[in-house]
């Protein structure tokens, strides 16, 4: 039970960022700056929570992530710069900006003062059962919110006009444009959503796990999220499955100190699995056809 509870806690940030990644890549923009956006989210989450409480923390983090995403969108969508390169630069930028702001605002480079998170809740009725206690008590409200966002995301992509158009743009932007769809606007939306969600993932780390901002606290979770996007075959529901699996790996790796399997092996599993998927050993990975390809409006090359 404690293992499961810990797995859920570790799943949430991966899942939020992965959901963001799904939106960005469905629109055709590869976002390897999820990590950077998450880092931005951790700082702004701490800032908001420090100043106005956890809700402001979540909001600030969302906006902070989206702010970084806006740069990504301008550079990759408007200017058509290679999305990988822009992502690498953004990750560097995020690290620098975050440290800089931490020093300016909190006086030290590497951490913020402690902040309080959301008030956890218990599941009424079930919280009496001793055996279930770790699972049904002290739950962060962000857990159900995340789950809701994923279901909403899946539904939006599948059933709404926006989702249909976003996916169309990621598959064949030229065709989408001939049908009167504004490719740039769709791609901007997808990228901004990814930043907002990755930012929120950062806020979760601050508000619900560490209760303060710590430099480097994302520990590459953004890249695990990227892996979850791929393993989840670019669907929110798939990302949910992948994130739960990866969260479980993480939870296990934290607990196997005594066992014979080195925890590093388990921590590497998400990455190994992703490589296997990409190589087609697990099943075919089918990214959106125009994923990663800059698009020029109106037939310019």
């Amino acid at each position: 039970m404690p293992l499961l509870a810990s797995a859920i806690r570790l799943t949430v940030p991966i899942l939020l960022a992965a959901l963001g990644g799904v939106f960005s890549e469905r629109g055709g923009v590869v976002n390897i700056a999820l990590e950077g956006m998450m880092i931005t989210g951790t700082f702004f989450g701490a800032l908001g929570a420090y100043q106005h409480g956890p809700l402001a923390g979540a909001l600030y983090a969302t906006l902070g992530g989206a702010g970084l995403a806006l740069i990504h969108a301008v550079v990759t969508v408007t200017f058509g710069v290679d999305q990988i390169i822009a992502g690498v630069a953004l990750n560097l930028l995020a690290a620098g900006v975050t440290r800089f702001l931490t020093i300016q605002i909190f006086g030290v480079a590497t951490q913020s003062p402690g902040v309080s998170g959301f008030v956890p809740f218990n599941i009424p009725g079930l919280d009496r059962v001793q055996a279930l206690a770790p699972l049904v008590t002290g739950i962060s409200p962000l857990v159900p919110v995340t789950l809701l966002l994923v279901l909403l995301g899946q539904w939006v992509l599948r059933r709404t006009a926006f989702g249909l158009r976003l996916r169309a743009v990621g598959e064949n932007p030229r065709a989408s444009e001939t049908l009167g769809i504004n490719v740039y606007r769709m791609r901007y939306t997808g990228v901004l959503l990814s930043g907002a969600l990755a930012g929120l993932a950062g806020a979760y780390l601050v508000l619900e796990q560490a209760h303060s901002y710590l430099e480097g606290m994302t520990q590459g979770l953004g890249f695990i999220a990227l892996a979850a996007v791929i393993f989840g075959n670019w669907w929110p529901a798939g990302a949910l499955g992948a994130a739960v699996l990866f969260g479980f790996f993480e939870a296990v790796s934290l607990r196997v100190v005594a066992s014979t399997i080195p925890y590093q092996v388990i921590q590497s599993l998400p990455y190994v699995v992703t490589i296997l998927v990409l190589a087609g050993f697990v099943r075919r990975a089918t990214p959106p056809a125009a994923d990663g390809i800059p698009y020029r409006r109106g037939g310019e090359e």
């Binding site: 065709a175 001939t178 049908l179």
Partner: peptide, 10 residues
């Protein structure tokens, strides 16, 4: 169009 403007997975 001569080259179809379709979204294959749709």
């Amino acid at each position: 169009h001569q080259h179809f403007m379709l979204i294959p997975p749709f």
